[in-house]
């Protein structure tokens, strides 16, 4: 599988923001590779740094307050250090993005047809008006909008949430990008519409062969869509695994806590839900050592190591499972297997 060509390489990405309260360390030392046609999921709760990561890949973070280090390589260009013009050439053509809230992602002042056309024209300045129009209709048909010729002249507010998300997808895919970043693409939608949108994205992936980076808090969505998964906590990847391994034998205490909370919701029996005690840490003031240690029931098993030393991402458990935890392999797998059942 990994013999396929990498389309996105992220090396040691760190992003911090200057705020009036201090420096927020949103992403810390993140590395991963996305291959052609692959679907990689990033899962995490609010404040885990997953959305900041998404924005960094296209250099969409606020250029005044954000500081990014490391490398993000798309089509041979380091997005973090390239000139504005070079990055602009990549945006929308090599790498495109679908946002969380389709209600606010479209410009309310222009028709949807215009907004799709605009995305195409900026990378195809030579296209004639007729070609552009044909492309707009083609994309609208592709994403399943009925009466595209008529609806192209309507404004975003005249569409339902699901239809708007289809338009956003049409805009993202109009230039056949190799990478699609989907940042919580279905979170704002109803379940039945969510199912439609996920199906659509997967169908289009089969057609275009693009790689999808799916960012979500919903493990159900991850289970249905992703092949590999990064679990993020407080700006770091705590686990990196094949999706089936992750759900079967999570190799990080946070992952199994997260899975446990969801899994116990799925079963019908009422009773006490498994939870992770406490709340995620403030990114202004991260805990020392492993950021998860204040909420981890096993931190004490390692003496003071968890509170002083940041664990590295190393292989634990199954072949493709990497996790950042000081616990011995056997102990983690033991814990993980309890959850897997």
């Amino acid at each position: 599988m990994s013999s396929q060509k990498p389309v996105l390489i992220v090396e040691n990405l760190s992003v911090s923001f200057a705020t009036p309260d201090g420096i927020v360390h949103a992403v810390n030392d993140l590395s991963f590779v996305l291959h052609e046609g692959e679907t990689l999921g990033i899962v995490g709760e609010s404040g885990s740094g997953k959305s900041v990561t998404a924005a960094s890949l296209m250099r969409l973070n606020n250029s005044v307050t954000a500081t990014s280090t490391g490398r993000v390589v798309v089509a041979g260009v380091d997005v973090l250090s390239a000139s504005e013009a070079d990055v602009r050439r990549l945006r929308g053509s090599e790498i495109a993005m679908v946002f969380q809230d389709p209600m606010s992602a479209l410009n309310p002042y222009y028709t949807v047809g215009y907004q799709i056309a605009e995305a195409y024209e900026v990378h195809h300045p030579e296209a004639s008006k007729a070609q552009v129009n044909a492309k707009v209709l083609e994309m609208m048909t592709k994403v399943g909008i009925p009466n595209p010729a008529q609806r192209a002249d309507e404004y975003p507010h005249q569409f339902s949430g699901g239809m708007r998300q289809r338009i956003v997808i049409a805009i993202a895919l109009v230039n056949d990008p190799k990478i699609l970043i989907a940042d919580e693409p279905t979170t704002a939608l109803d379940v039945t519409v969510q199912a439609q949108i996920l199906d659509l994205m997967l169908a289009l992936q089969v057609e275009n062969g693009m790689a999808i980076l799916l960012i979500t808090h919903d493990l159900g969505v991850i289970a249905e869509v992703a092949r590999d998964v990064l679990v993020m906590y407080a700006g770091r990847v705590v686990e990196k695994a094949d999706v089936e391994d992750l759900f079967e034998i999570p190799t990080h205490p946070y992952s199994w806590g997260l899975l446990g909370a969801v899994a116990s919701l799925e079963v019908s029996s009422r009773g006490h839900l498994r939870t992770i005690e406490g709340t995620p840490p403030s990114l202004l003031n991260l805990p020392s050592g492993c950021a998860f240690h204040p909420r981890c029931s096993f931190a004490s098993e390692n003496g003071s190591r968890c509170t002083t030393e940041t664990p590295l991402l190393v292989q634990k458990g199954p072949k493709h499972s990497f996790s950042a935890c000081h616990l011995p392999v056997e102990r983690i797998v033991e814990i993980g297997q309890k959850v897997g059942n």
């Binding site: 924005a55 296209m58 969409l60 504005e84 602009r88 050439r89 990549l90 945006r91 929308g92 053509s93 495109a96 993005m97 946002f99 969380q100 809230d101 606010s104 992602a105 479209l106 410009n107 309310p108 605009e118 995305a119 900026v122 990378h123 956003v168 805009i171």
Partner: peptide
């Protein structure tokens, strides 16, 4: 606004 970010993500120039 998200739609401004989408505009940037399309590859539009800053002035546009």
């Amino acid at each position: 606004e998200d739609f401004v970010r989408l505009g940037v993500a399309k590859g539009l120039s800053r002035s546009v």
